[in-house]
Simulated assay, not measured.
Amino acid sequence: MTDVRIRMFVADDKDWLLEQHRFLYARDEGFDETFGALVSDILDDFIAHHDPERERGWIAEDDGGRLGSVFCTHTNEETARLRMFLLVPEARGQGLGRRLLDLCISHARDQGYRDITLWTHESHRAACALYAATGWQIEDSKATRSFGQDVVEQNWRYRL
Rank of each mutant, 00 (worst) to 15 (best):
R114T: 08
R114L: 14
D115T: 05
D115W: 02
D115Y: 04
D115I: 00
D115L: 05
D115K: 05
D115M: 10
I116E: 01
I116H: 03
I116Q: 11
I116Y: 06
I116C: 15
T117N: 09
T117R: 05
T117S: 12
T117A: 02
T117F: 14
T117E: 15
L118D: 02
L118A: 06
L118K: 06
L118T: 03
L118M: 10
W119A: 00
W119D: 11
W119T: 06
T120Y: 11
T120H: 07
H121R: 01
H121Q: 13
H121D: 03
E122I: 10
E122Q: 13
E122A: 12
E122G: 00
S123M: 05
S123V: 10
S123H: 12
S123A: 11
S123Y: 13
S123W: 00
H124D: 07
H124P: 06
H124T: 06
H124K: 09
R125M: 13
R125K: 12
A126E: 08
A126D: 05
A126C: 00
A126Y: 04
A127K: 00
A127W: 11
A127P: 00
A127I: 01
A127G: 02
A127F: 12
A127R: 02
C128G: 03
C128I: 06
C128L: 12
A129V: 03
A129Y: 11
A129I: 09
A129H: 09
A129W: 08
L130K: 03
L130S: 03
L130E: 08
L130V: 03
L130Q: 00
Y131W: 10
Y131F: 12
Y131N: 01
Y131C: 11
A132K: 13
A132P: 04
A133M: 02
A133T: 00
A133D: 09
A133P: 04
A133N: 00
T134R: 06
T134H: 14
T134F: 05
T134M: 02
G135E: 10
G135P: 08
W136F: 14
W136E: 07
W136D: 03
W136I: 04
W136Y: 12
W136C: 02
Q137L: 10
Q137Y: 09
Q137P: 00
Q137K: 09
Q137R: 07
I138W: 05
I138D: 03
I138L: 08
I138K: 10
E139R: 15
E139T: 13
E139H: 14
E139W: 14
E139Y: 09
D140I: 01
S141I: 03
S141V: 10
S141G: 02
S141W: 12
K142N: 05
K142E: 07
K142R: 07
A143N: 08
A143D: 13
A143R: 02
A143C: 05
A143Q: 14
T144Q: 06
T144C: 12
T144P: 03
T144H: 10
T144V: 11
R145T: 15
R145M: 12
R145C: 13
R145H: 15
R145D: 11
S146H: 14
S146G: 03
S146C: 13
S146A: 15
F147M: 08
F147W: 15
F147Q: 04
G148W: 14
G148P: 00
G148V: 07
G148R: 06
Q149F: 10
Q149D: 07
Q149N: 07
Q149P: 06
D150T: 11
D150N: 12
D150V: 08
D150H: 02
D150W: 08
D150I: 10
